[in-house]
Measured scan of single mutants.
Amino acid sequence: ETKSLTLVLHRDSGSLGFNIIGGRPSVDNHDGSSSEGIFVSKIVDSGPAAKEGGLQIHDRIIEVNGRDLSRATHDQAVEAFKTAKEPIVVQVLRR
């Protein structure tokens, strides 16, 4: 079962304390579909994302501050987090 969660993150020394993997390839599949998503791959101990109620590894990131990342490329997702103003509201899907 997958549930949708909304989390609020604040940077600590400029970092949110997690890494992402995935992202849509720069070239779409011929039918326009994509199974890619942006997923949390690593969480830094005691970083902002590790706090209670924070992110978990394998969370799929859907949205950052209202910006849809469900079909974003990896670079677009990285840029969305880099430029996001605080508080950073992150919507994820968690299995």
Results as ranks from 00 to 15, higher is better:
residue 92 V to I: 09
residue 34 S to F: 11
residue 60 R to Q: 15
residue 34 S to V: 11
residue 17 G to N: 11
residue 70 S to E: 06
residue 94 R to L: 00
residue 71 R to Q: 13
residue 5 L to F: 11
residue 8 V to F: 15
residue 6 T to A: 09
residue 49 A to C: 10
residue 92 V to T: 02
residue 4 S to N: 11
residue 34 S to R: 11
residue 71 R to T: 15
residue 3 K to N: 14
residue 30 H to Y: 11
residue 47 G to K: 06
residue 10 H to N: 15
residue 16 L to W: 07
residue 34 S to E: 15
residue 37 G to T: 00
residue 72 A to H: 04
residue 30 H to M: 10
residue 32 G to P: 15
residue 39 F to D: 03
residue 43 I to N: 02
residue 13 S to E: 12
residue 53 G to R: 06
residue 27 V to G: 12
residue 37 G to A: 03
residue 89 V to R: 12
residue 13 S to W: 05
residue 69 L to G: 01
residue 73 T to K: 05
residue 84 A to R: 01
residue 75 D to C: 07
residue 44 V to W: 12
residue 57 I to H: 05
residue 9 L to R: 05
residue 84 A to C: 06
residue 37 G to F: 02
residue 13 S to A: 15
residue 71 R to W: 06
residue 89 V to F: 07
residue 25 P to N: 11
residue 39 F to N: 02
residue 47 G to R: 07
residue 93 L to D: 06
residue 68 D to K: 03
residue 24 R to I: 11
residue 52 E to I: 10
residue 55 L to R: 01
residue 9 L to N: 03
residue 65 N to D: 05
residue 39 F to G: 00
residue 26 S to G: 12
residue 91 Q to N: 12
residue 21 I to W: 05
residue 6 T to E: 05
residue 92 V to D: 00
residue 5 L to S: 03
residue 51 K to H: 09
residue 71 R to M: 10
residue 86 E to I: 02
residue 41 S to R: 04
residue 32 G to A: 10
residue 83 T to A: 11
residue 33 S to L: 11
residue 44 V to C: 13
residue 95 R to G: 11
residue 92 V to L: 05
residue 24 R to P: 08
residue 41 S to V: 04
residue 13 S to M: 15
residue 22 G to F: 13
residue 65 N to W: 01
residue 1 E to W: 05
residue 73 T to V: 02
residue 31 D to L: 09
residue 63 E to M: 10
residue 9 L to P: 02
residue 1 E to I: 15
residue 3 K to C: 10
residue 46 S to M: 09
residue 67 R to F: 13
residue 72 A to P: 01
residue 19 N to A: 06
residue 38 I to N: 02
residue 53 G to I: 07
residue 71 R to L: 12
residue 55 L to T: 00
residue 12 D to F: 11
residue 57 I to R: 06
residue 14 G to P: 05
residue 28 D to Y: 10
residue 75 D to S: 13
residue 38 I to M: 02
residue 71 R to V: 12
residue 91 Q to F: 01
residue 1 E to V: 10
residue 66 G to C: 02
residue 10 H to V: 09
residue 73 T to C: 05
residue 41 S to W: 04
residue 33 S to C: 15
residue 95 R to N: 14
residue 14 G to T: 07
residue 6 T to Y: 05
residue 65 N to Q: 03
residue 71 R to Y: 13
residue 45 D to V: 05
residue 34 S to A: 13
residue 11 R to A: 03
residue 31 D to Y: 09
residue 73 T to H: 05
residue 73 T to L: 03
residue 38 I to G: 00
residue 34 S to Q: 09
residue 63 E to K: 14
residue 54 G to H: 08
residue 8 V to H: 15
residue 53 G to S: 08
residue 46 S to C: 08
residue 13 S to L: 08
residue 75 D to I: 07
residue 60 R to I: 02
residue 19 N to C: 07
residue 24 R to M: 11
residue 53 G to D: 13
residue 3 K to A: 10
residue 70 S to D: 04
residue 20 I to S: 01
residue 52 E to V: 13
residue 52 E to C: 11
residue 1 E to L: 08
residue 20 I to N: 00
residue 28 D to F: 11
residue 72 A to T: 05
residue 84 A to E: 03
residue 93 L to F: 04
residue 44 V to M: 14
residue 38 I to T: 03
residue 33 S to G: 10
residue 84 A to H: 01
residue 86 E to R: 04
residue 59 D to V: 00
residue 5 L to E: 04
residue 62 I to D: 00
residue 72 A to L: 04
residue 45 D to M: 07
residue 17 G to A: 03
residue 7 L to E: 01
residue 62 I to N: 01
residue 32 G to H: 14
residue 8 V to D: 03
residue 24 R to H: 12
residue 92 V to M: 01
residue 84 A to M: 02
residue 35 S to L: 10
residue 89 V to N: 07
residue 12 D to T: 15
residue 51 K to R: 11
residue 86 E to Y: 04
residue 95 R to K: 08
residue 30 H to D: 13
residue 42 K to C: 08
residue 33 S to F: 09
residue 42 K to I: 03
residue 2 T to V: 13
residue 89 V to W: 04
residue 64 V to D: 15
residue 58 H to W: 07
residue 20 I to H: 04
residue 46 S to T: 15
residue 75 D to V: 10
residue 24 R to F: 12
residue 91 Q to D: 08
residue 17 G to H: 04
residue 71 R to F: 12
residue 85 K to V: 11
residue 36 E to D: 10
residue 7 L to V: 15
residue 86 E to K: 04
residue 20 I to A: 02
residue 37 G to P: 04
residue 43 I to W: 03
residue 38 I to Y: 01
residue 28 D to H: 10
residue 51 K to L: 09
residue 18 F to T: 02
residue 93 L to H: 13
residue 57 I to P: 07
residue 40 V to A: 07
residue 11 R to D: 03
residue 17 G to M: 05
residue 7 L to T: 05
residue 15 S to E: 12
residue 70 S to R: 13
residue 45 D to P: 12
residue 65 N to F: 00
residue 42 K to A: 11
residue 51 K to V: 09
residue 66 G to R: 04
residue 18 F to I: 05
residue 5 L to Y: 10
residue 43 I to D: 02
residue 33 S to W: 14
residue 81 F to L: 15
residue 26 S to D: 11
residue 69 L to W: 00
residue 6 T to Q: 14
residue 63 E to V: 06
residue 13 S to K: 09
residue 52 E to L: 10
residue 46 S to A: 12
residue 94 R to T: 00
residue 84 A to P: 01
residue 49 A to W: 06
residue 78 V to I: 09
residue 45 D to E: 15
residue 60 R to W: 02
residue 94 R to E: 01
residue 89 V to K: 12
residue 83 T to N: 15
residue 37 G to E: 03
residue 53 G to C: 09
residue 26 S to L: 10
residue 35 S to V: 10
residue 1 E to T: 14
residue 26 S to E: 14
residue 72 A to Q: 01
residue 95 R to D: 09
residue 63 E to Q: 12
residue 7 L to R: 04
residue 41 S to P: 00
residue 16 L to V: 15
residue 54 G to I: 06
residue 23 G to N: 10
residue 89 V to Q: 11
residue 45 D to I: 05
residue 37 G to R: 01
residue 46 S to G: 14
residue 19 N to F: 06
residue 4 S to P: 08
residue 24 R to Q: 12
residue 38 I to Q: 01
residue 22 G to C: 13
residue 46 S to K: 14
residue 43 I to V: 09
residue 73 T to M: 03
residue 92 V to E: 01
residue 88 I to Q: 00
residue 60 R to C: 04
residue 26 S to F: 10
residue 32 G to N: 15
residue 3 K to Y: 15
residue 24 R to A: 13
residue 10 H to K: 15
residue 37 G to L: 01
residue 89 V to H: 12
residue 30 H to A: 13
residue 22 G to Q: 15
residue 4 S to W: 04
residue 93 L to G: 04
residue 92 V to G: 01
residue 57 I to Q: 07
residue 14 G to Y: 05
residue 6 T to H: 06
residue 81 F to Y: 08
residue 89 V to P: 02
residue 21 I to R: 13
residue 54 G to K: 13
residue 63 E to Y: 07
residue 26 S to P: 12
residue 60 R to S: 02
residue 50 A to L: 06
residue 21 I to E: 11
residue 49 A to H: 12
residue 85 K to A: 08
residue 68 D to P: 04
residue 27 V to F: 11
residue 70 S to M: 09
residue 20 I to R: 01
residue 91 Q to H: 12
residue 53 G to M: 08
residue 43 I to R: 02
residue 27 V to P: 13
residue 41 S to N: 10
residue 10 H to A: 10
residue 41 S to K: 05
residue 51 K to N: 11
residue 12 D to R: 15
residue 27 V to Y: 11
residue 31 D to N: 13
residue 5 L to D: 00
residue 6 T to D: 01
residue 49 A to G: 11
residue 35 S to C: 14
residue 31 D to P: 10
residue 11 R to Q: 05
residue 59 D to C: 00
residue 62 I to L: 14
residue 84 A to F: 01
residue 5 L to A: 04
residue 3 K to M: 12
residue 9 L to M: 13
residue 71 R to D: 15
residue 39 F to R: 05
